[in-house]
Design a protein around this nucleic acid. Sequence first.
DNA 1: GGCGGAACCG
DNA 2: CGGTTCCGCC
Length: 137
Amino acid sequence: MKTLILYTLKNISSPGSRQIQLWHFILELLQKEEYQGVIAWQGDYGEFVIKDPDEVARLWGIRKCKPHMNYDKLSRALRYYYNKRILHKTKGKRFTYKFNFSKVVLVNYPLLDMASSPFLLAQNHFNGEVFSFFIFV
DNA sequence: GGCGGAACCG
DNA sequence: CGGTTCCGCC
């Protein structure tokens, strides 16, 4: 049985909340229609294409206060996600990566019961952030 | 472009 | 710990 997990989140700007992580930021852009010319879901489930690498890097640089950010550095950070099983590369497709959603949820929300209802919508607090899960089985 | 080692940083 | 910076290699 194949599971698609659409995952959204909101940061709470409260004391004690962690700094934004790159894959959070990627999902944040992916969630917003106004960035579809820059980064968008494309191809298989969880697969996305960076249509404008320079712009994504610029936006990431602004968020992290790293004015010298570029795609070369950003992509190195994405490559570190391969061993963590958060992302992997879609070989042959330029600027295309794929999320391992099950791993992403498992790693960041270990209390979630994967074997529950076919459709599940949950919003919960975890480490100072609000997570919303949409799970379609 | 894409990869991964290595040094480095808050 | 999660990147950032830099780089040699393919």
